[in-house]
Simulated assay, not measured.
Amino acid sequence: MAKPLVAVVGRPNVGKSTLFNAIVNKRISIVEDIPGVTRDRIYFDAEWLNREFTMIDTGGIEFITDNSHVIPKMMRLQAELAIEEADVILFVVDGKQGIVPADEEVANILRASGKPVVLVVNKIDSVNQEPNIYEFYNLGLGDPIGISAKNLMNLGDLLDDTVKHFPPVGTNVDDEDTIHVAVIGRPNVGKSSLTNALLGQDRVIVSDVAGTTRDSIDTYWTQKKKKFVL
């Protein structure tokens, strides 16, 4: 069977990409103190307690009704696709800021998904901040786990809880014969459109704005019984 998929979701700027990088133990996703840096789904393998799994980083989920804000809407679509395919969802919230209306709206989406959800209260950087965790019980998603992704605090407890939700151990996909193909070129020549056309799905965000794709995006693809990473 394929490796379990773990999606990291939440509103913008709560530390999703910092957590993703900490778990995969590599700087894969771009991290900045501005919302909206991560836009597409980003995949990378990780391991904990001898269980291999694939992490999915996503852009922040925003609830915008203005039709002029195309990219935030497409970012939300990418996050919703990650929720749909994930085996476990890490819902990241900001322990310093507390619950905001967008957290409640994301929580509603996750409850409707029926998927196992681990509620991750990030930015708990010291013992003095631990009481901030209890407010998040109000989201109705079980016991929140306080962590500091930036300082690598309490990640072990988080991963212990995450792997409990994995499907039974099976045989992982053999990737020895997988062919890796890179799509490159200067900005705004249609690389993302080509990728989506090959895959037959809206895998990466496409817009007329140069530089919409910011991270390298790996996608597994099978064509005529041959396996590729595009």
Rank of each mutant, 00 (worst) to 15 (best):
M1K: 07
V6C: 04
V9N: 04
G15Q: 01
G15R: 02
K26E: 12
I30T: 13
D33Q: 11
D40T: 09
R41Q: 14
E52T: 07
E52M: 01
T54M: 06
I56F: 06
G59D: 06
G60L: 06
I61Q: 08
I64S: 11
D66K: 12
S68E: 14
M74L: 15
M75Q: 15
M75S: 10
A82R: 10
E84F: 14
A86K: 03
V88A: 01
V92R: 08
G98R: 12
P101F: 09
P101K: 07
D103M: 01
E104N: 07
E104C: 00
V106C: 03
V117W: 02
L119C: 07
I124G: 06
E130P: 00
E130H: 05
Y134R: 15
Y134I: 10
Y134N: 14
Y134D: 15
E135F: 12
N138V: 10
L141W: 10
G142E: 10
G146Y: 09
K150V: 03
D160Q: 11
T162E: 03
T162D: 01
K164M: 13
P168E: 12
D175V: 03
I179W: 04
I184H: 05
G185I: 03
P187F: 13
P187W: 08
S192A: 00
T195E: 00
D202K: 13
V204W: 03
V206G: 02
S207L: 03
D208E: 13
D215E: 14
T219L: 01
T219G: 01
W221L: 01
T222S: 04
F228K: 03
L230E: 03
L230D: 01
